[in-house]
């Protein structure tokens, strides 16, 4: 199983750094097999078609754009992405 690819897009604004920090915390706390990148290059950000930063992209899909979600919401977004990717049934026993 290849690790999940998570990208936080944002050109260094405070809210963008906040989203990066929260996502990193969620990935570490849940022990997700994920590659997390923080993209600040504008050309790279625009390639994703995002006009509102910060944005959270999981395996190429924009999950959040223009706001900073709560850690619980990020965890939800990342865990549904893993179950979809690996095809296992949900793991909601938290």
């Amino acid at each position: 199983m290849s690790p999940m690819n998570i990208k936080v897009l944002g050109a260094g604004c405070a809210r963008c750094q906040q989203l990066h920090r929260l996502t990193k915390e969620v990935v570490e706390e849940l022990g997700l097999p994920a590659q997390l990148d923080y993209i600040t290059d504008m050309a790279e950000i625009m390639k994703h078609g995002v006009m509102r930063t910060p944005a959270l992209v999981v395996d190429g899909t924009i999950k959040v754009s223009g706001r900073v979600p709560s850690k619980a919401e990020i965890a939800g977004l990342l865990t549904t992405a893993t179950t979809a990717a690996t095809g296992t049934t949900g793991n909601d026993g938290k």
Partner: peptide, 10 residues
């Protein structure tokens, strides 16, 4: 909706 942090991508 607009936030100055989105001014550049916008």
């Amino acid at each position: 909706p607009f936030c100055s942090c989105s001014a550049v991508p916008l």
